[in-house]
């Protein structure tokens, strides 16, 4: 047993981690950029709406690097990649639908509030 382990240890390859650290720096850089947009740039330069668009774009890029490189999905069989990614398109639809609906909920709250205020005024 000791003999086989000895052979085993001599066979160990050198670590190949340059790609991993490259992804780390990209993730760190994007996170730093998110903080700069949130704290250093006033809303008068980039409006809040555009900031939200930037945050979502940066989040998607970060997610793509984590899933593709760290979780190795972009190096898997294409069929596996789509089996994981495609179901997520339903989420995008649901998010859009719910944000849209929440606007209607807000509007109906507001109109009910106005009606009760009017009734009280009378």
């Amino acid at each position: 047993m000791g003999h086989t382990e000895h052979i085993h240890t001599t066979e160990i390859a050198k670590p190949n981690t340059a790609g991993i650290w490259r992804v780390f720096w990209i993730l760190l850089g994007i996170t730093a950029l998110e903080f700069i947009v949130a704290l250093a740039i006033p809303d008068s330069v980039i409006s809040h709406g555009w900031k939200v668009v930037l945050y979502i774009l940066m989040t998607v890029v970060k997610a793509a690097y984590i899933i593709g490189e760290f979780m190795h999905l972009s190096h898997e069989v294409k069929f596996l990649l789509y089996a994981i990614i495609l179901p997520m398109s339903f989420i995008v639809w649901l998010l859009g639908a719910m944000i849209w609906e929440s606007g209607s909920v807000y509007d109906s709250h507001e109109s009910v509030k106005k009606k009760t205020e009017k009734a009280k005024g009378k």
């Binding site: 998010l95 719910m98 944000i99 929440s102 606007g103 807000y106």
Partner: peptide, 10 residues
């Protein structure tokens, strides 16, 4: 998270 978005924007 979608619940968060829904409640926040209402």
């Amino acid at each position: 998270l979608i619940t968060y978005g829904f409640i926040r924007y209402s």
